[in-house]
Every structure is written in structure tokens, then in C-alpha cells.
């Protein structure tokens, strides 16, 4: 096994140990934080598929998080409380939105792509802001968490955490297969050289679109879990700064490695919680740390780690 899957599995095991550890030291909030970490790790993984492997810098990815979250609220209002049905609905809605917005955005490149995905993200944001039936700007609280086979099992934070962790493991495993399969190689090819891909007979657009849709669907599933974690749904989930945060996670962890995406999500959420507990102006510190990382460690934390390790060996 090469280093990356090992690191990913280590991260998953580390997360799995959080609830017993939290119980041992009597701090149940740790489990809540770990749940958030795992949820955002799924979202970061989904973004890594298009950004890391397809070089498609989407700045509207939080829209899918929000779509997933609202799918929970909408389903619940219509009496559908089963988690898997809600995930299905969320994935379907995300696929539709991604197919349409992707078909337009993927005609553009570079800065234009970044901005048009941002615009689509804002469109989704404003759509939900104006949806007064679901609280508009303020959002709406969920009556309860989703059910599993008609049971309210997920009301228990630990049970819910392991559910999220299972989803994360599944997302990681599936994506790991995908990026090493034929599709993944083609997607990576479009990242490396679009011209070369066309010159050996591929039409990059269709692979990019497929990846874009799939990525949106996975992120929507993360959104379903996020809504369940907070038991609240609001347009704030799809604010453009949230999309920025997802990109931050990837960059902190190192773009284009699935383990890096997960690590980046863990570190980002952890850092936010830590700094937020320390000062109400935590964003200032967070920004300074980010800036320092970009200016001095272009390959993110994994790059930093790699350089430190290499330096140690020398």
C-alpha cells in the first residue's frame, strides 16, 4: 500500500476513536466536532474530485451543501424522514443543478470558470434566501433528525457520528477506486493537458461534466448530514465564503490527493473550533494562518509536512 491510502485509513481510524475518547474524558462536544469534521471531509473529497483531479476551480461548491441540507427540510415537511430517501432526493436535485450549471460553466476556462461557478452558487443562495416557506434569510429548524428504517436512531450523537463516518469511508473508498479507474485517468489527463487529450481522441467536456455532476451529488449527501448535525437549515450553508472555505480545506491538505482533502477538512474545522473558542475575532487569526501557509508553503500542510520530513532525513 502506498503512503496516501495509509494516511487516509489512519485518519478514519483516528476519527473512529473520538467517541470513546470523548466518553473517557467526559467531553461529548468532541464527538460533535468530529462529526462536523467528517461531514466537511466528505464535502472536501467531492470538491477534490473536480478541483484536484480535473483542475476545475469551482467557487460555488457550497451550493450543493445547501441543496443537500434543504433536501432534508423539504423531504421532512412532506413526511419523508428516512435518511437514505433524503440522500437520494438530495443527490437527484444536485445532479440536476450540476448538469445544467455545469453545461454552461464548463464552456469557460480559468478565471471565467471560477467566476461563473461563483455566480451559480450565488443564484442558488438567493433562491433559498427568497424561499419564505422555509424561513427565507433565517432558515428553519428541523423538527428532528432523519430516521433510519423508521427508527430515530440518529438522535443519539454517537450513533449519528458513526453514520457520518461510514459515509465518509464510503465516499473515500469509492472516490479512490474512481480516480484510479479509467475515468479517473481520463479526468487527470484533462487536468494535465486538454490539447493532448483531444489529440488522442477524447472530448474533455463530457468527462468534466460527469465529474462535476458526481461531485455535486456527493457534496449534497454531505449537506444532508450537515443539516442533521445542526438540526437547522439556512442559506448560510451556501454563502460564497463557505465555498471559499471548502477550497481552503483542499489547499491546506494539498490538492489532488484524497487523503489530503480529508486532512485539510479536519485541520480547518479543528482550527476554526479552536480559534473560535479562544476569541470572537478568530477569523483574523485564521486568515493570518492561511496567508502564511500560502506565502510560505505552496503545497499546503502535506507539502509542509513532506518538506519537514525530508529536511529531517537529510
Amino acid at each position: 500500500m502506498s503512503a496516501a491510502p495509509k494516511a487516509a485509513i489512519a485518519l478514519l481510524i483516528l476519527l473512529a476513536l473520538v467517541p470513546p475518547a470523548a466518553a473517557a474524558i467526559g467531553d461529548p462536544f468532541l464527538t460533535v466536532i468530529a462529526t462536523r469534521m467528517a461531514v466537511f471531509a466528505i464535502a472536501a473529497l467531492s470538491l477534490d474530485l473536480i478541483l484536484g483531479y480535473g483542475a476545475l476551480v469551482s467557487f460555488g461548491h457550497a451550493a450543493y451543501l445547501g441543496l443537500g441540507a434543504y433536501a432534508v427540510a423539504v423531504c421532512a415537511r412532506h413526511g419523508i424522514t428516512d435518511l437514505f430517501l433524503q440522500m437520494g432526493a438530495a443527490a437527484l436535485a444536485a445532479a440536476l443543478f450540476a448538469a445544467v450549471s455545469g453545461a454552461v460553466s464548463l464552456r469557460t476556462r480559468g478565471i471565467y470558470f471560477i467566476m461563473i461557478t461563483l455566480a451559480f452558487g450565488q443564484m442558488a443562495y438567493f433562491f433559498f434566501v427568497s424561499l419564505s416557506a422555509y424561513g427565507g434569510d433565517d432558515g428553519t429548524a428541523l423538527a428532528a433528525r432523519s430516521t433510519l428504517f423508521g427508527r430515530a436512531w440518529l438522535e443519539n450523537d454517537t450513533a449519528f457520528f458513526y453514520m457520518v463516518l461510514a459515509c465518509l469511508a464510503l465516499a473515500y473508498g469509492g472516490l479512490d477506486r474512481l480516480v484510479h479507474a479509467r475515468f479517473g485517468r481520463v479526468l487527470t489527463g484533462t487536468r494535465e493537458s486538454e490539447l493532448r487529450m483531444r489529440a488522442i481522441g477524447y472530448r474533455p467536456f463530457r468527462y468534466r461534466l460527469a465529474a462535476y455532476v458526481l461531485s455535486g451529488m456527493i457534496c449534497a449527501v454531505a449537506g444532508v448530514l450537515l443539516a442533521n448535525q445542526t438540526e437547522y437549515v439556512s442559506p448560510a450553508y451556501m454563502a460564497w465564503t463557505r465555498s471559499g472555505e471548502l477550497i481552503v480545506m483542499l489547499l491546506l491538505g494539498g490538492v489532488g490527493t484524497l487523503a489530503g482533502a480529508m486532512a485539510g477538512a479536519l485541520v480547518t474545522v479543528g482550527l476554526e473550533e479552536l480559534l473560535a473558542g479562544w476569541s470572537e475575532h478568530w477569523r483574523l487569526c485564521f486568515g493570518l494562518i492561511l496567508l502564511a501557509v500560502v506565502l510560505w508553503s505552496p503545497a499546503g500542510l502535506t507539502g509542509l509536512l513532506r518538506r519537514l520530513l525530508a529536511g529531517g532525513r537529510r
Partner: peptide, 23 residues
Amino acid sequence: RPHLDQVLATFALMLILSEGVKI
């Protein structure tokens, strides 16, 4: 630097400045 780094750095700057304004 690549666009991605610029996005990240200016995003960080945005956080810093808007939080600074709040302070």
C-alpha cells in the same frame, strides 16, 4: 503563482481585513 494560491491568499486577506474592520 497559480490562480488557486491567489484565491486562497486573497480569501485570507478578506477574512483578516473584514475582521479587522469589525474590531
